[in-house]
Design a binder for these strands. Structure first.
Lengths: 218, 218
DNA sequence: TCCTGTGAATGGCTTCACAGCG
DNA sequence: CGCTGTGAAGCCATTCACAGGA
């Protein structure tokens, strides 16, 4: 048996799957389920039941043979790991349609993700508020992030402004960025970046359509 | 040497990287570069130069020793593979802030991704137009997609409506979906689905912040 | 010397397969 | 029996390392 204590090693692939496990076990919990089998979790997540069992084992979540896993136990353990009870301070740069969509996304605060600052370059927007959060000048990103203790920065600007925003966030002490702009950001290694790139996703779908459709089935 | 002809086998991981290779070689092309080394591509994409060389080889893109790869050749080959010269017909379900952000995203049409239909359930929106595309009733998704030959469906609805929309798209002959709703869709295996899930991404960032910050550096 | 081309080695994730227990 | 727990096998992607041509 491997080390299953707090400082244990988790495989990167397992880590990537944790948030989805958490979501589905939340849904199961709210639908009143007490236990769940690895096979059910496999269906709900799209992973294989082998992978689910291996992951939960690595996450120190024990099941009961013949029964399954305890839904509440999964929820609690994964919530601890992700830190849903903690509150994370987010800022969004760029209050276009995308930035607005994010700032209105009520699921965020329910998950301990609080948007506490919005930034834009447009003088007409600066000073107004969106979802109760005032829009500040983009030039003040670094200073305001430092002052407010922003932990996660969201880049929802046009591509041309993304790198500058990212730099300002980093200067302001932000060490995690979610980047919606279609550019590869160059950042210090200690800064976490995740990319959400719609164009890339659509091109991949197009590729698969084109390569599979002529074959009949896949 | 392996088979490098049209029907060749590409590794899934290579396929996932193609759109980004295409983007950076486009940028290089427009900045006037004639050739590019695998090391430069590595910096621009975030992959290793070994991986870049292996990928381009697998994609039948030859370089010249001591010089590098021909930017125009990469562009042309990858454009052929992705099908950028072809025109793809997209429809978006859900004209909230997110749907609007997508419909205004001018990069799409430049890449051969044309939004030809918008759907919503809100009677106040139906009949109006956004970015020159009329908003149709969500109930008509299947029929209109069939009529218009929609190839890629984008789900930008609230979570509760996502599965029904997906079903309608599939009924309308759409075989590729981009899902922004925080739910796992259950669909026939021949339908391609890609998920864009902001909540999952943010939770992963939070996890990494929490697990790395206390350690000092990573 | 520079950078590609490419077998071989490495490392890790997933799947197999089945033992083990309620 | 049902479903977990888990070594071992198999597979696949990446990295190493260096030969080879401009």
């Amino acid at each position: 048996m491997q080390d299953r204590r707090a400082g244990m090693h988790l495989r990167p692939t397992t880590i990537e799957r944790i948030p989805l496990y958490l979501r589905v076990s939340d849904q199961l919990f709210h639908s009143g389920a007490d236990t769940v089998s690895s096979e059910q979790l496999a269906v709900l997540t799209g992973y294989s039941s082998d992978t689910v069992r291996r992951d939960l084992w690595d996450l120190s979540i024990a099941g009961r043979r013949g029964i399954g896993f305890d839904v509440a136990a999964i929820r609690e353990r994964l919530g601890d790991i992700i830190g849903t009870s903690a509150s994370w301070r987010l800022a969004i740069a760029g209050v276009g349609n995308l930035g607005r969509a994010l700032s209105h996304y009520s699921n965020l605060s329910r998950r301990g993700l609080d948007i506490i600052a919005l930034f834009d370059v447009d003088p007409a927007k600066i000073g107004t508020a969106d979802s109760g959060v005032e829009i500040l000048p983009a030039l003040e990103i670094a200073g305001e992030c430092k002052r407010l203790g922003v932990q996660i920065g969201v880049i929802a600007t046009p591509a041309a402004a993304a790198q500058a925003c990212a730099n300002s966030f980093v200067e302001g002490g932000v060490r995690a960025l979610l980047n919606f702009a279609p550019v590869t950001l160059e950042l210090p290694r200690e800064v976490q970046v995740r990319r959400v790139d719609v164009l890339l996703e659509l091109q991949l779908l197009a590729y698969h359509l084109r390569s599979k459709a002529p074959l009949g089935d896949g």
